[in-house]
Design a protein around this nucleic acid. Sequence first.
DNA 1: GCCTATAAATGGAACGTTCCAATAAATCAA
DNA 2: TTGATTTATTGGAACGTTCCATTTATAGGC
Lengths: 352, 352
Amino acid sequence: MASRAKATIFDIAREAGVSKSTVSLVLQGSGLIRPETASKVRKAIEDVGYVYNRGAANLRKAHSNVIGMVINDLTNPFFAELAVGMERVFQSAGIVPFIANTAENPVRQEEVLKSLMEQGVAGLIVSPARGTTPGAFRKIETAGLPVVFAMRRLPESRIPVIAPDNHRGAYLATAHLIGKGHRRLVFFGGSSDLVVYHERLGGFREACETQGIAARDALVVEGETSRRGGIACLETALAMAEPPTAALCFNDAVAFGAMLALRKRGLEPGADFAVVGFDDVAEAEHYMPALTSVAVDSAGLGERAAHVMLKMIQSRTTRAEDHIGAVNLVVRESCGPDRRARNRPAGSGDAA
Amino acid sequence: MASRAKATIFDIAREAGVSKSTVSLVLQGSGLIRPETASKVRKAIEDVGYVYNRGAANLRKAHSNVIGMVINDLTNPFFAELAVGMERVFQSAGIVPFIANTAENPVRQEEVLKSLMEQGVAGLIVSPARGTTPGAFRKIETAGLPVVFAMRRLPESRIPVIAPDNHRGAYLATAHLIGKGHRRLVFFGGSSDLVVYHERLGGFREACETQGIAARDALVVEGETSRRGGIACLETALAMAEPPTAALCFNDAVAFGAMLALRKRGLEPGADFAVVGFDDVAEAEHYMPALTSVAVDSAGLGERAAHVMLKMIQSRTTRAEDHIGAVNLVVRESCGPDRRARNRPAGSGDAA
DNA sequence: GCCTATAAATGGAACGTTCCAATAAATCAA
DNA sequence: TTGATTTATTGGAACGTTCCATTTATAGGC
């Protein structure tokens, strides 16, 4: 049974009493083979314990059936969701995606990309690591391999992007905060080496401007995009001479951190200080208090990215249109009205 | 620059004025080539935009340098951690692991396994999907491919396993609960198609027995291993005629669910009902109240699994010893003493 | 200057497939 | 029957590498 040297189509051919070509045809499900012959061959395949050698096949075939998905942080459920969405559509297309994690490390990313190319992937879906250099994808592009970016984009690049409408999401969230009566706001977390940061911050600023918040009341505190970063952001914000009353956070992790820090100071998130997150990870709904957040439907974006990739491969092109996914503010309990604003209506009419 | 047909070692050879064999040697970093020749070749490699074809190489070479990691649920940070741990050691060994997700689906798992084998991986690390049939790995075994199971094992299988000491973890946690004065306990979540379930439940039962808890006071409520499952478990437990006062949960997700459900009923986790989790995911520490949980060091287990795999490949064997990882109960705030027990010392002895 | 030893480079076969062109067998029209 | 057509099957070349056995160039010993 377990013959030491692995079986090839020649072994199958001998076993079934046909030629290697016939075996190959059966393997590919060709209709040219007489059914009885085909089943004879299939039996032989079982008997010899054959495993198909895709490497050898790709030597002759134009395209492989594997696609690489390069994810910047697999431990972040947000990106894991993205991967799962992509998988769903590839699976139904008979393609097996291989996932590789770069752990937000450009050097690692380079290795991973190289390895995937050597493996002969048909295409690449990438959520680029922070700090990716502009030239990182040049080689891949000149090789004519289809690539799409998901979630994140590179500053200047012609590679198609599938991403949420960060600007609008931040705008919506900020407008909601302002609508609740907050007049001194802060943007928490992230740093300017990330395009997403600029997009979200842009939405925040535009909302402030549009809704009559002075620029000096639209604060920014950069920081890590993690729980820890959120804690730090909140500390520095509350240490200000004139602290803000509400925060839009770069992502949910930062928001969780900020809420944690509030609790530690004896303040109640929502009542004493409003916080809204971004991404709407599964945890947001279950937090105490439940976090108001901008839902981006990462699994949906993953599916979209996969579809775009499939189409690119099929039409053997390396170009495609960007796709900006709709976002959706889901309001929960983490941002009550500004305390001071709430007191006012009871008193006298004041500027809205 | 971007020549349409992809470059091969022959193109490099022509460009550099050497033979294909020389190019091959340079590619492999052989010391047999004169340094000047080597650098001439390396320049040519750059110039023609060459990408190595690993499939072709594997046709001749004995072993490939890719390892497959098959994960049952990537969106569970617990398993994602496992993957990250493995990656860490493979990276330093110059091996690129490809991750594939089975989404807890045995059929999907079969496809993934097949694809990985066809790709010619050197080995497989698998956290098997729930409901995996005993024969699912037979083909792989007869092919002589090294496999190790991580986190989970199959009922009867000779494949080496790297997993935490579930029995002991559950024992420790249960003993802690009993030490806090609880006399009627429940095990929440999981179901008997999972070996891990039996291990953890076994630890729970042994602790109860050893510490003088009658069997009828060691309850079990099966359920989904998710937040939702935890909610359901708590509901049924509290609906009992004589409800328990403390729960050991199958994993942290179940514990979060249970705590959520407690809150919803106006009960305070920790004070009114003790809950301890299992796995100690990152979130546990930050929950309100912080969750007491059994830490299993999944990243560490991932590293261990990777090391075992590396050794198996190196010594071309398909056998290795199991490795049971140490566990560690980390006590936080989610399990105070039994209320009634707390009252006793002050007042008088009453029925527990 | 010749022979030998060492270093550097090379040609050819092999790896396991696919695909094309060719053959063999079966069917049909006349 | 014979040739034409269709249906099944097959051999051979090619894909891009590695590796072995050779060849060629360089150096060393006398």
